[in-house]
Design a protein around this nucleic acid. Sequence first.
DNA 1: GTCTTTGCGCAACCGAATTGCATCTGCCGC
DNA 2: GCGGCAGATGCAATTCGGTTGCGCAAAGAC
Lengths: 146, 146
Amino acid sequence: MGRPRSHQATQVAAAQGRIRAAGERLTAPRAAVLAVLLASDTALTHHEVAQSLRTGTPVDRVTVYRVLDWLVGLALAHRIPGEDRTWRFRANRDSAHGPHAHFTCSSCGRTVCLEDVAVPPRVRLPRGFRPQKVELTVQGLCAACH
Amino acid sequence: MGRPRSHQATQVAAAQGRIRAAGERLTAPRAAVLAVLLASDTALTHHEVAQSLRTGTPVDRVTVYRVLDWLVGLALAHRIPGEDRTWRFRANRDSAHGPHAHFTCSSCGRTVCLEDVAVPPRVRLPRGFRPQKVELTVQGLCAACH
DNA sequence: GTCTTTGCGCAACCGAATTGCATCTGCCGC
DNA sequence: GCGGCAGATGCAATTCGGTTGCGCAAAGAC
């Protein structure tokens, strides 16, 4: 990582602020999980989040799952379905984050958001079908695995 | 479905032909699984395939998994990641089937291929990233659940 | 400080998918 | 037609991501 080790720690305050701003109860696990997401520039699996938490604020697996779901419900994070049948989570940078695409490296498995890739605005569906959400995922090799 | 009940049976011959054409060993489970996929107009989960096979040619769960993977490897079928963390499988109609989108009904869970929806030809990736596959999934309500 | 509400940790559970291994079977060569 | 063998199948056990139930603990309102 090019960031100082303390990056995650500095995000705790930001995480606390967001949780407070949402009017939700502030707990150590919640702040810690959100801080991990905020500190990461890739989408993280539940496992990776728990791993990051091992030192510092150990949090139970189940709690991590619950907090992640809770964050998604509050729109503080979003969930990305992976090719390997695991969810990945990513903090929403701003409240007005539009639909965007994701890139998954087929070598290292890392998933990043492609903020500047416009999800196709319109798809022609069979008659009677009503769209709700569009998911656009690109698979390939990232710069590191290139 | 508007098709006669025997539709699946009539597909066995087609399935056998495709397997033979691929120069692969022809077995009852392989033909049966492929016939099920060919007879379906929606993408099927492993479970649904095994279910369809219960009458007629009972096939072990594990064999269904293996045959499905094998079909994907031969490009006789393709695999669609679902929102519910289960794979869905669909026979490839013709050998030259391009990239296409998928629609999943969030109510009944049925997944269909949107053959006529062009997957965005180009996405701008960060430098050094190389695309391999683009997955475009639309979620919403199908005509039946509408 | 206390009290109520709500989240947390633990353990047990679930379902999809995978692996190991012994047995069976296409199908190739005769 | 008829072995023989590589490769496919079936069965059981296992892995793994994720979920559920429940008693205890902590947040925050008073």
